[in-house]
Amino acid sequence: MVSPRPTSQNPDADRARSDLARFLRIVTHDLRQPIAATRTIASVLADGHAGPLLPSQADLVTRLERRLEFMQALVDDLIDLATANVGSGVDAARSVTPLGPAIGEACARNQAIAHAAGVVVQCDEVEDTLAVHADAADLALMLDNLVGNAVKYSPGGRVRVSADRLSDTARLVLADTGIGIPDEARTHLFEEFFRAPNAKAIDPLGTGLGLAIVKAIADRCRLTIDVESAEGRGTTVTVLFPLATA
């Protein structure tokens, strides 16, 4: 079982959020936008709209597209990590977010990728009144990363997402039949840019920021995360949220 260590809260959150907003504008316009434009240009070439390509040219354009895709994913994850660290300013304790719809939406957003990878995603029915004290945007970002990770590392397998009430908490459980986490990788799991060797083998161009984003949200919102895993057999992630009344 691995749990991320909580980190201290930022003492000047408003200032941090203001700096973050400025940072996001710069990153989005000056970094994300040029990468996106370059990907469209590469796509015009790859799809033959500027004329047919020789096989060697097509190969190079494919490599270009793959590297650009990684750069885009890295920028997007850095934006998400910055957002996860600082938050939107919404007080989680005053936010009430129903858990069932949030889970359903995250599963739906990952469905196309799951289908392409031959992964069956099962979202169990969640009690209508089960709600948590968490900002909806934080919850969506956390679920996207957890479900996305489970799908990515369970090719041809199954991912099951469920939630229930456990005393004064709401318990979210994501269980997959994927590649699992090697023992030696467990202590590094929530570190930024860390990638376990078996994860790299499946997805060489992952950013290693997904679980760091999850940890940042968990720290800021004081959530508890546990990870149980067996290499080659799968992983179960459990998140405990403060229970709210929907």
Binding site: Q33, A36, T38, R39, T40, S43, A46, D47
Partner: peptide, 9 residues
């Protein structure tokens, strides 16, 4: 949302 593929555009 950018990037958009040529075919989708």
């Amino acid at each position: 949302e950018k990037p958009v593929s040529a075919d989708r555009l």
